[in-house]
Design a protein around this nucleic acid. Structure first.
Length: 166
DNA sequence: GCCAACGTTGGC
DNA sequence: GCCAACGTTGGC
């Protein structure tokens, strides 16, 4: 799940504990939340539109099938005049904080590691704010992020394409 | 600020 | 249903 850290970051989620994922106004992303995500599913929390875009931590789906209240709020940026409480258009999930990586796994690192070939995030033009991730990619991401976080911010790692700084 | 790649809107 | 115009996303 992507978020601009200026608006809502993994640290905000850590402070708050849990949060409804409101404001999504793309049908494909909505459908993932409404139809695919289950309580207990793990979430990779991605920071976008920032100096160092990357995966900043982990969350977990804590509730599903929630109506996004911002669609009814005429003061909100996410107001949708065509939505009514009787016929809502936008649903959301709630996520709970799990873990913050002291060293986020950067987009540039993900691009450098051939293990991540096929990761949707890396596909040109892929802008969807909620994307599925394979079990294999998820496991590798968590493994690398924890390793980098435990060692410090500047380390070099061996990848199939040589040595890359994270 | 640029720009590619979408998604959405609305006329026809 | 088609498609041009426009808006948005998001890396760089």
């Amino acid at each position: 799940m992507k978020s601009e850290p200026d608006v809502f970051s993994i640290s905000h989620l850590e402070e708050r504990g849990r949060s409804g994922w409101d404001g999504v106004r793309n049908y494909q992303a909505r459908n993932y939340m409404r139809d695919e995500m289950k309580v207990g599913d793990r979430v990779l929390f991605y920071h976008s539109s920032t100096a160092q875009p990357g995966i900043a931590g982990l969350a977990e789906v804590s509730a599903v099938g929630l109506v996004d209240p911002t669609q009814f709020d005429s003061e909100s940026d996410y107001f949708d005049a065509k939505a009514t409480p009787a016929q809502p258009r936008w649903w959301m999930v709630e996520i709970a904080f799990v873990e913050k990586f002291s060293t986020p796994l950067s987009l540039s690192y993900l691009r450098s590691d051939p293990d991540f070939e096929g990761l949707l995030l890396l596909r040109p033009g892929q802008r969807l704010s909620i994307q599925p991730v394979s079990q294999e990619h998820y496991g590798r991401i968590v493994e690398l992020a924890r390793r980098f976080s435990s060692v410090g911010s500047q380390i070099a790692v061996e990848s199939g394409r040589g040595v890359t700084t994270c």
